[in-house]
């Protein structure tokens, strides 16, 4: 049995996560959630002086905003949309018959106007755009959302439903780039406090198909995305626990977010993979939080 599965099984056996019939969809225990809440407080404390507002999003966003994001151009394989029954009595009877006979009952479900949020910062952009031009100081938002990506896996770090906490900077290109550089340093400081081995490396998103190879290589060449990686499943392929992204004016243009001078806004974000960071802590410091190193406990629980 390989290592990844055994770590997941340990988490189930210890009651930190609870298994389900679907890979990558797990219930969380109180212990696990407490670690995440403590980590979120720590991350928030690093950005508290600059943060202008805070938001928490539901796990879905309006289909129209999802379309505007351009997600289907680049990641159609990961997207999820919400479908619902919209039929009459007759259709309902047909549905029940399908269920009873084990046939596919979902084929007549209709798309609703909600898509599952693929990245925590997407719901923010339309909110900012609706306000009109930004103040000269731009915006600096702390946010959190459940996200969905369709990639079933038994790797505990690759869940289908997971949370990202983010800080997002919206303003001019200098503000966005400076923000990203600051958080690259802060990210490493945070991991040092948590005594987790890590390094930051240039990265690319998992763009779809052959065309995606070009998108990925050009994202790397332009150094638009960096990831802070920690060995969790293996030393050879460490897991991205934070990402530091400079979107240039792509989202500013897509959603028509304007700077004070009327030009399109530039955006950058730092994302913390909350479940992954909790898993990294359990992996490196053990399954019993009371046995974690004193200084790590102090950083998290005070």
């Amino acid at each position: 049995m390989d290592k990844q599965i055994s770590f997941l099984d340990q988490l189930f056996d210890r009651g930190i996560l609870y298994d389900s019939a679907v890979d990558g969809l797990y219930a969380r225990s109180g212990i696990f959630e407490d670690v995440i809440a403590r980590f979120e407080d720590l991350a928030k404390s690093f950005g508290k002086d600059e943060t202008s507002e805070a938001m928490v999003f539901p796990p879905g966003l309006p289909m129209k905003d999802f379309e505007t994001s351009g997600y289907m151009k680049n990641f159609p394989q990961l997207a999820g949309t919400v479908h619902a029954f919209c039929g009459n009595d007759h259709d309902h009877a047909g549905l029940l018959q399908c269920l009873a006979s084990g046939e596919d009952w979902t084929k007549n479900q209709k798309a609703t106007d909600i898509a599952l949020t693929p990245a925590a910062c997407y719901p923010l952009y339309p909110i900012l755009a609706r306000r009109g031009p930004l103040p000269a100081t731009g915006a600096y938002v702390a946010l959190q959302s459940y996200c969905y990506r369709h990639e079933p896996s038994r790797e505990p770090t690759r869940m289908q439903m997971f949370r990202q906490r983010e800080f997002v900077r919206v303003g001019n290109s200098e503000q966005a780039i400076e923000f990203r550089e600051t958080w690259k340093k802060r990210g490493q400081e945070i991991m040092k406090l948590l005594q987790l081995p890590c390094h930051v490396e240039v990265a690319n998103d998992p763009f779809f198909g052959r065309a995606g190879k070009i998108m990925g290589s050009s994202q790397r060449e332009q150094e638009l995305k960096f990831e802070l990686v920690v060995p969790i499943n293996s030393e050879a392929s460490p897991t991205a626990c934070m990402s530091f992204n400079y979107h240039m004016d792509n989202f500013g243009k897509a959603w028509n977010i304007r700077q004070a001078d009327g030009s399109h806004a530039y955006t950058a974000c730092v994302g913390f993979g909350l479940e992954r960071i909790a898993l990294a802590l359990f992996r490196h410091h053990g399954l019993e939080t009371e046995n974690w190193p004193t200084n790590v406990r102090k950083v998290l629980w005070g």
Partner: peptide, 25 residues
């Protein structure tokens, strides 16, 4: 980057070729 992808697909159609992995950059 996205336009370069559209361009690649158009080139493949026009010349009846397929860009191999080593040229997808």
């Amino acid at each position: 980057s996205f336009a370069s992808v559209q361009l690649m697909l158009a080139l493949e159609d026009a010349f009846d070729v397929e860009f191999p992995e080593n040229l997808l950059n």
